[in-house]
Computed example of a mutant assay.
Amino acid sequence: MTVMAERPTINGSEPNSFEDLLRTLDELDVPDGYKAEIIRGNIVVSPWSKGYYHRVMRLVCEQLEPHLPAEHSISYGPFLYVFPGDERAYGPDIHAVPEHVFETTSNHLDGEALSFVAELTSSSTRDDDLTGKVETYGRAGVPVYLLLDMQEEQTTVFSMPSAKGYEACETKPFGEKLSVPAPFDCVLDTTGFKAP
């Protein structure tokens, strides 16, 4: 289930800016088991991942961690990355950034600092994972976007960010190995990514 506030209001009036949406997002009382993001000018509340997604996220992190750029960390914690130029705020399933990004009291982290992001699709966010996030992450200069299509059981790695999104991508079915480009330059084994 996804709850979408088509036109969220602040004190009875429509928000005027992306900053208003961020303030509204901060004030939301999101139920346990849900996360909130700003997608296409709307605040979208969606359920947390299915249980087996944890295994997949852990496998990705374990494989990429030895290949992280210096002073970077990778996590699948619930953090909100902001992309003001696209008026988007995403809570990616997996993210890698330089450690200094977390040296803030704000809960709005710099999306342009990301060196890696991965999204595991769900029926509620799949469309944006396949389209809007490809464009936003690419325009922000995120070097690698890994899309784990849990419905189609395939992995796509996007690289070479540009003003239009990404210039390169490669797709493999779950169970095969996939090259993850710079700054990681490693191979991701997708064995164990399928649903139980």
Rank of each mutant, 00 (worst) to 15 (best):
residue 38 I to M: 00
residue 17 S to F: 03
residue 116 F to A: 01
residue 122 S to H: 03
residue 80 L to H: 09
residue 27 E to M: 15
residue 30 V to R: 04
residue 45 V to G: 07
residue 196 P to V: 04
residue 25 L to I: 02
residue 155 T to C: 14
residue 109 L to I: 06
residue 42 N to V: 11
residue 100 H to Q: 11
residue 155 T to F: 05
residue 63 Q to E: 04
residue 117 V to C: 05
residue 31 P to F: 08
residue 182 A to F: 06
residue 134 V to Y: 03
residue 168 A to L: 14
residue 134 V to I: 10
residue 90 Y to W: 13
residue 15 P to R: 07
residue 121 T to W: 04
residue 163 A to E: 15
residue 171 T to P: 05
residue 55 R to L: 12
residue 29 D to V: 12
residue 41 G to T: 07
residue 102 F to T: 04
residue 176 E to C: 05
residue 120 L to M: 08
residue 25 L to E: 02
residue 61 C to A: 15
residue 41 G to N: 09
residue 34 Y to S: 08
residue 127 D to G: 11
residue 81 Y to C: 07
residue 46 S to F: 11
residue 191 T to R: 15
residue 183 P to N: 07
residue 193 F to D: 04
residue 184 F to K: 03
residue 162 S to R: 03
residue 58 R to Q: 13
residue 159 S to N: 02
residue 103 E to L: 15
residue 173 P to L: 10
residue 93 D to H: 02
residue 37 E to P: 04
residue 53 Y to Q: 13
residue 167 E to W: 10
residue 126 R to V: 12
residue 120 L to T: 01
residue 104 T to S: 09
residue 102 F to P: 00
residue 28 L to W: 07
residue 163 A to I: 10
residue 3 V to H: 12
residue 177 K to Y: 09
residue 73 S to I: 15
residue 13 S to E: 15
residue 131 T to F: 11
residue 22 L to D: 02
